[in-house]
């Protein structure tokens, strides 16, 4: 049952060198640099996103993810869900308005997989970038690189995904769209959505807590994924795998790494989900095909290389 959470709102990533990271997220992915703050954090977004930013880069001594935030329909929903999170047993922290520039207060909470999440309802809306609000053109002519349209989802690794998936379903109203089950019926992976998208967040069982597998950005077409691969070659960017297709969600995809080792995905296509849809199930012995639909073989790197 939906509980008033709308969509992924932002992800804060740790990077080892800010200039290199900006080259990756702004110039290669084609995200729009929207702002910077006194801490030196850089705020970006995909051009179709109406809120001011969706990606925050923080220079730090390690790579990985600080937190992922989800946007709710209103402040009353944030209040209600805050109480439910406390009742569920989460450690909850209130982050004041303005801690992220032009973002309202956020409620941060921990999770069994060791990741930090947030809910919020208020962020300055600057509208889609480069096109007007009335009679908008199809796309802005000033886009660069892969022309990523939005921050779409992230895949997180950690222990006890059953716990975090239950938290997301029970308290936040996410629905299980796809899953990987082993022979005993244990869920090794869960793909969750709060809307019609194939996934808004995904989890894979892994002993190390709080790990990031990838942050993913949406492109319009399969051809755009192939063009992204060309740009990866032209810029000598660290390639992981692709272009290929996923079995899970059936999206067309390529994985590569930012200059601090955080994995990036750009993808197109993918299935859709309605609340009355049964979860789509992949069996663990078909995991190769579930992840890499063409090769049908999982590479070691997909399961172990994380930040």
């Amino acid at each position: 049952m939906r509980k008033g959470v709308m969509r992924p709102g932002h992800i804060q990533l740790r990077v080892l060198d800010m200039d290199e990271a900006v080259n990756h997220y702004r110039d290669l992915l084609g995200l729009i640099e929207m702002d910077r703050d006194e801490q030196g954090r850089v705020y970006l977004k995909g051009w179709t996103e109406v809120d001011k930013f969706s990606v925050v880069l923080r220079e730090a001594e390690s790579a990985g993810v600080d937190f992922v935030g989800y946007k709710c329909v209103d402040e009353a929903t944030v209040d209600r869900l805050r109480e439910e999170l406390v009742a569920y047993g989460c450690k909850v922290e209130d982050i004041p308005a303005g801690e992220l520039k032009d973002c309202g207060r956020r409620v941060r909470f921990d999770s069994p997989t060791g990741h930090m999440f947030e809910i919020f309802a208020t962020k300055t809306q600057t509208g889609k970038w480069g096109v007007g609000k009335v009679n908008p053109e199809a796309w802005p002519r000033e886009l660069t690189g892969m022309k990523a349209t939005r921050f779409d989802h992230c895949l997180l690794y950690g222990p006890n995904i059953a716990g975090t998936i239950d938290l997301f379903r029970t308290v936040l109203g996410f629905e299980l769209a796809e899953q990987v089950l082993d022979g005993e019926g244990t869920r090794l992976a869960g793909f969750l959505t709060v809307g019609m998208k194939a996934h808004d967040v995904a989890f894979i069982e892994h002993p190390e807590p709080g790990k990031l597998h990838h942050a993913s950005f949406f492109l319009d077409t399969w051809y755009d994924v192939l063009r992204a691969a060309d740009l990866i070659a032209m810029t000598d960017t660290s390639l992981d795998i692709g272009p290929t297709r996923h079995g899970l969600t059936h999206g067309e995809t390529i994985y590569f790494f930012d200059p601090s080792g955080n994995r990036t995905e750009v993808f197109a296509g993918g299935d859709y989900h309605y609340p009355d849809h049964e979860p789509v199930t992949w069996e663990a012995d078909k995991l190769g095909k579930a992840i890499f639909y063409h090769d049908r073989v999982l590479n070691e790197r997909f399961l172990t290389v994380l930040t």
Binding site: L16, S62, A63, G64, S238, F257, D258, P259, S260, G261, N262, R263, R301, T304, V305, L306, T307
Partner: peptide, 11 residues
Amino acid sequence: YVGCRGGGCGK
């Protein structure tokens, strides 16, 4: 072992 090639994954 070849991982991320970016100093992040430790592999």
